[in-house]
Design a protein around this nucleic acid. Sequence first.
RNA 1: GGCUAGGUCGUCCAACGGUAGGGUAGGGGAUUGAAAAUCCCUUAAUUGUGGUUCAAUUCCACACCUUGCCA
Length: 311
Amino acid sequence: MNKIIVVTGPTASGKTALAVELAKIYNGEVISADSMQIYTDMDVASAKPTPEEQQGIPHHLVGFLDPSESFSVADYVKLCDECVQDIRSRGKTAIICGGTGLYINSFVDNLEFDDSKQDFAFRDEMRKFAEKHGNSALLEKLREIDPQTAETLHENNVGRIIRALEVYHTTGHTISQAKAMSRQIPSPYEFIMITLDFDNRETLHNRINRRVDEMLKHGLLDDARKCFEQPNRPTAAQAIGCKELYPYFRGEKSLEECVEELKLRTRQYAKRQLTWFRRDKRNLRLIIGENDELSDIVKKAVDLINSSNAV
RNA sequence: GGCUAGGUCGUCCAACGGUAGGGUAGGGGAUUGAAAAUCCCUUAAUUGUGGUUCAAUUCCACACCUUGCCA
């Protein structure tokens, strides 16, 4: 397969199983596109593919980074490209599989991130400014230098506003300019992008609820407790499946309450993922029916790939 | 059965007798260096039947349902 196959979908939609089947069919290897599976811990919480699930198919960008490290899209795009080149140099098909839309789109669109550094002191300064003068004053600050971006941001979205100001502060050009510059060279690769979705939302919700229960049986609490006891995790602290259980460890809430919260947060995350994937019209939707087996889904995926290649 | 306090969006809680409002869930959207994060928008309700009144979620009566206490 000359093209790169991309498998996306909301959490618990069965991406991993599909990617492995496609790897068998197309002589492929899997590259994970997941902001949490990159870390060396949280095996259960991040639903890392187990050796049994991997079925001998090589998986890349899984479990290679210490949770005390921070990570960014720019890092991902770079590492993913290295993996793709490696896989293709060996004559195999690259299959990107994951639910982190930002990572996937940044790679597919070949976004170029220059080496503008982060300035944490500046961020603090801006945050204090916003606390003192209000969010709208902060947004006005941005409007003066980059009205285009200011127009797209709500004043409560302080994090984004500060980032936009930070880019200007550290590089001298606005984030609008940076965005335009980042898109100058299209990707050298061709992609077939498949997005998993369900015929109705309830099917997905049921799968999520069931999967959380499964995770609990497979040691989710141990994962979460390790996170709880190791507070220094810049990116990894956000993982769903860990932070929701902290109130239980602190004795503030019952386990049942925390598990319900965890399921809720997972459902909401899945909804956000669907919104992200819907936006990109290149995504070919693969609708999973309530009674579809893995073999049915694989067949639908192969059909999508064939019809896409025929065009 | 008696007493008691209630019945308002799916759920939790508001509304001097005068436009039924908010939290949360659900739905939709945004997304360029922390993205499993962050932010925005939004659907949706007065238990029923009478009565008082220009006007009833609000006052009165009855019915039904629920809390708690007593039997």
